[in-house]
Design a protein around this nucleic acid. Sequence first.
DNA 1: ATAATAGTGTCTTTTAGACACTATAGA
DNA 2: TCTATAGTGTCTAAAAGACACTATTAT
Lengths: 289, 289
Amino acid sequence: MPYDPSDFPPFAVTVDLVVLTVRRHALCALTVRRGEEPYRGQWALPGGFVRTDEDLATAAARELAEETGLRTNEPGSGHSAAHLEQLATYGDPDRDPRMRVVSVAHLVLAPDLPAPTPGGDAGGAQWTPVGALLDEGGARGAGDAAAPSADTAGAPADSAVSVESGTGDGSGGRGEDGTSGPPAGVRLAFDHGRILADGVERARSKIEYSSLAAAFCPPEFTVGELRRVYEAVWGVVLDPRNFHRKVTGTPGFLVPVGGTTTRQGGRPAQLFRAGGATVLNPPMLRPEV
Amino acid sequence: MPYDPSDFPPFAVTVDLVVLTVRRHALCALTVRRGEEPYRGQWALPGGFVRTDEDLATAAARELAEETGLRTNEPGSGHSAAHLEQLATYGDPDRDPRMRVVSVAHLVLAPDLPAPTPGGDAGGAQWTPVGALLDEGGARGAGDAAAPSADTAGAPADSAVSVESGTGDGSGGRGEDGTSGPPAGVRLAFDHGRILADGVERARSKIEYSSLAAAFCPPEFTVGELRRVYEAVWGVVLDPRNFHRKVTGTPGFLVPVGGTTTRQGGRPAQLFRAGGATVLNPPMLRPEV
DNA sequence: ATAATAGTGTCTTTTAGACACTATAGA
DNA sequence: TCTATAGTGTCTAAAAGACACTATTAT
């Protein structure tokens, strides 16, 4: 195909952010309220245009800093702020009524922040439990219906293995704490509901076989704190003893840092930081419930 | 940030394709020879511009059809042609010297084709073992049969086999005759080496916990054929008995279709098609070597 | 016959899952 | 004291890995 710069259709390219954290035992996403049309007044994911001279990941990090003050880093500093990775790209011709916009969504996993809702140029930003945004099994309003298709085999038409499936997991995002929170059924603007669902599913599956759950924890954390992250993200209850055995028994997964803490109450617990082993093999299995 | 259509920087958006298949016990990728600058004469991944009115997946499917004649489908037809999913998006400001191009890469898994190199508008397209393109530590191709890809035997009657085969430049002096394997270290144009590596890694990891390996097989296949796919993709040798037990023992993974075949020689083998179970839990573990 | 692949069964080792029990803090 | 969490050990069931052995074709 001839590569003629004069005839390529122009697109706007943006980054959207699925920023997740664990607060009060619930998986929460950062949402901002839109101040302009379309979807004025509705909740959306933070994001913005990619600039001419910046990489996609750079744009995502910049937007993140603007909206939350969070910094991402990968360099050898063990663990400093937040994990950022590319999630997927959404380019349906109709996804934005104003023009053709291709959005490169990114996923950010951050520890619970002392200042959860700093104001960037975004209007009101706040943490919202994903259960209120995703219509999951409905542990909230609806009679906690049994997880869809308890047996994965009988799942609905296989169709796309790709990003289509969604909802496949029977976790059911139960709000562990029943604290206030927006009513279930909030619809995000644009296709952000879909983007959020994809991001949550990515996070849920990735902590199975990586040490990524530590990104939800402070730099030094206990085994119990890490376990509570898994419980909140998966919406399940894990056996503390078996969990302890699994994570401490995998070489390189956790590195003892020396001290102890009693911030969770009870007996003092050893402090760890995430080890270099990013791969957990065999993986930690999500209970099927 | 104000959302002003007048000040967004324009980008070109393309789709690039990592098309993988298994040929003669080796994992191969579809490559095309560039006919224009930059990187004229070098190998690259197939791809092209996204049109104004089409979705990203639609654009990828269209390019795939143009270059290979392959069709992708997800509809209930169990299994017909190729699997297509979005891979990742590459948008480094310098990735294309001519202009700012954001490329949404897609991954395609296809069965070995009778006509491996149909001509679309791409010049010479051919299957190349990924081991020759990726600089992997040890020769990874299973069965050591690092077969060179160029077999003109199965070439389609219809179009040019290698219009571009001028080989004018020093990049790809590979044995088109097939006597000598392509030298390792062929560099793909642009950042396509990186994109291919990401696609291969995606394929390698995804067949661990899904039935996706069946996308490399014809609609009906035997357990042994499926095992050879795993062996080629992972570059390992698997125990036929344990593999058989694993895949036939997972409910919904394989569906017996009734007949048998002896196309692999030996005792007749049962024919299966991919079952609805897209999730393999617990996963099949890649031997660590 | 030999060679090739298909398929079943058996044994051992590893690991997940369930759960008893002890340890050390604060209220 | 009681209660919470941390951590260890033990038993069982499931599954992986390493084989032996039989079955059915082609040459």
